[in-house]
Computed example of a mutant assay.
Amino acid sequence: MPARSAEGPPDGIRLAGIGDEAAPALADQIGAVAELGWNRLELRTIGGTPVARLDERAFRRAAERLAAAGTDVAAVASKIGDWSRPVTGDFALDLDELEILARRCTVLGTRLVRIMSYPSGGLDDAEWGRRARERLRELARRAEDHGLVLAHENCAGWAGGRADRMLDLVTGIGGPALRLLFDIGNGVAHGYPPLPMLREILPYVVHVHVKDARVGKDGEVAFVPPGAGQADVAECLRSLLRNGYGGVLSIEPHLALRPHLGSGSGDPAAFVAYGRALEGLIAGLGVAGGGR
């Protein structure tokens, strides 16, 4: 079983968290992972503003603060193709965001950018798929030119809930710059079992969100600590680590913040408690992971 220090992750496991799940302000995001004994953040918003939309001065201040704290950036969670951008919308928004993030990821020292594959915008399935694949092909081409890797999440979009479509993206159009992000809890929220999907796509997974959830008698989805829900978090983690997954495990509790609903603003204490629960869960798996 992985050894564990008094504070911090079990040896050989790389842990991070989506910072705005802890707090809006970057200083508090850094403080939350530091309290856990971690040194990685996944950046989504700072002060409520997505990374690509920060003005240049605000971005430079953020990068300097991260460097001064010794906090690495595991990935940037972009808005490219997400729930707010249907495939019928303006593609220039995504192309512009990718160009900005290409520059900013270099400063932040990360190559990984989270994306999705576009809501349908009311199109039929065939046209939705054609347009989504066309856009992702162009995004992947540009990402490769910039040395980035786009990590497609199993969330909103044409390929969000289907392993066959995700595999089509990475083997059919994407090349090395398009890979997969697996969010363990999204299956519960979107109505499919997570573990069978993971087993199908595992060779292409480069980043993981740790989330857990359960569906109540009223059909409402409640997000819960890792291992307390219906997402088979322990089995998903065991499958990842036994099959040589060497990427980061990034917590996305959704206990205090629901970005897609525009509710909440993060909770540092809940974030830290969630991280501790994940450490305990990993320590009980009996498998070691990739390097720290």
Rank of each mutant, 00 (worst) to 15 (best):
V107W: 09
L136W: 06
D90Y: 02
A92V: 01
L123I: 03
D94N: 07
E99P: 00
P119D: 13
I100E: 03
A92Y: 03
G109M: 12
R111F: 03
S120D: 14
R135Y: 11
L95I: 06
I100G: 01
L95K: 11
R104K: 08
V113D: 07
G109E: 09
D124M: 00
R133T: 14
R130W: 10
L95N: 00
L108E: 03
V107D: 06
T110C: 09
T110R: 07
L112D: 01
S117F: 06
R137W: 09
L93M: 03
L98E: 01
A102V: 03
L123G: 04
A132K: 09
G129F: 15
R114T: 04
G89M: 01
F91G: 04
T110A: 07
R131K: 13
D96G: 09
I100A: 12
R103I: 05
G129M: 14
E97K: 07
A92L: 09
E97G: 06
D125E: 15
W128Q: 10
W128A: 14
Y118S: 04
W128C: 14
S117M: 11
G122I: 00
A102I: 02
R137Q: 12
S120M: 11
D94T: 03
P119A: 10
L108Q: 03
L123H: 02
D125N: 08
I100V: 15
D90Q: 02
D94A: 15
D124P: 07
T110S: 08
L98F: 05
R130M: 13
C105M: 08
L123T: 01
V107G: 01
I115C: 08
D125L: 09
E134C: 07
